[in-house]
Write a protein that binds this DNA or RNA. Structure first.
Length: 299
DNA sequence: CTCCAGGGTAGTC
DNA sequence: GACTACCATGGA
């Protein structure tokens, strides 16, 4: 069964910039990227869809295949892609602030149309946040690949093998020693298994966050063992649709601020606060653009 | 060998 | 609340 959906691209959206961010130079086992498209498996209401997104004449073109589309498949896929690329947000206020920034203003041109790329699934997002703590991203993607290839499901289409992220039930049933064998640290292994258990017994789910205030979302997240301030903010901006987040202490963020000459000392919290206060309400976007600035285009 | 990487917890004062 | 020790492991 095949579905094609067209979405009109909003202002201040550039698909190529978004694709490039997804690619950077990292090896994400959940995505297939070509120069002009991205493909992945998405689970919607329990059914797996293979989505391929590309663009044509100002529209995003989504091609989806599945065995059994439900009655609202088209709408759900549209919602998914819309959330993935943050399509519904009007970025004009952020760009106004950005253009007036004497140091970072160039980003409004250089990265024009880059959107905050989301992670739809809360379980996947939390696991990725935990995996990424305190290790370099190259290694983090390796760990993720091992976990996904061993414990996720695989779907084949046109000779490609697609992976789904492991289900909480699967991770909950693993032992710390098993994950240590994949080179997860003892602590991370424990965090992941514990979080998987929270999803499995129903005490943690994305829908519980829907009506919470931003501070309440962060509070609920940091109450979970293994999730500190950094991880909670990362999850809030990538998965819970919050754009006022600052993953404090983030190594990449601090590096970007140093490279732009905005701070000289990584412990200079006052200066960092001052920078972010100018972007109040758009902190997540500033962070995203600063992360983007760390990746250099080689072509 | 050293320092760093998209940190977190637990203990102390 | 701020500071400290400790954890843990690949990459440059």
């Amino acid at each position: 069964m095949h579905i094609q959906i067209k979405i009109k691209q909003p202002p201040l959206f550039n698909f190529e910039e978004c694709l490039w961010f997804l690619n950077r130079s990292y090896d994400d086992c959940m995505l297939y990227l070509t120069g002009s498209s991205v493909s992945k498996v998405v689970s919607i209401e329990g059914t797996d869809f293979i989505l391929t997104v590309n663009e044509k004449a100002g529209f995003l073109i989504i091609n989806a295949t599945t065995a059994q589309p439900g009655p609202y498949a088209t709408e759900r896929i549209r919602d998914y892609v819309s959330a993935w690329f943050d399509l519904e947000r009007d970025l004009s206020a952020f760009y106004k602030l950005l253009r007036n920034d004497p140091i970072l203003g160039y980003m409004a041109g250089a990265y024009k149309g880059l959107r905050l790329i989301g992670i739809a699934e809360l379980f996947e997002s939390i696991c990725w946040g935990i995996i990424g703590q305190q290790i370099n991203l190259t290694f983090a993607y390796k760990l993720k690949r091992r976990l996904v290839e061993l414990y996720g499901e695989t779907i084949q289409e046109h000779g490609r093998i697609y992976h789904t992220f492991p289900r909480p039930e699967t991770i909950a049933g693993l032992s710390v020693e098993t994950l240590q064998g994949l080179q997860f640290s003892k602590q991370k292994a424990g965090y992941l298994i514990n979080v998987a258990g929270l999803f499995t017994d129903g005490s943690l789910k994305k829908s519980s966050f829907a009506n919470l205030a931003p501070e309440e979302k962060l509070k609920s997240l940091t109450a979970i063992k293994g999730i500190g301030v950094w991880t909670a903010n990362y999850i809030a901006m990538k998965t819970l649709n919050e754009i006022g987040c600052v993953p404090q202490g983030d190594a990449g963020l601090l590096k970007a601020l140093e490279l732009h000459g905005l701070i000289n000392d990584r412990k200079d919290l006052a200066t960092i606060d001052k920078i972010f206060s100018y972007y109040r309400g758009w902190e997540s976007y500033l962070v995203h653009y600063l992360w983007r600035s760390l990746a250099v285009k080689t072509e």
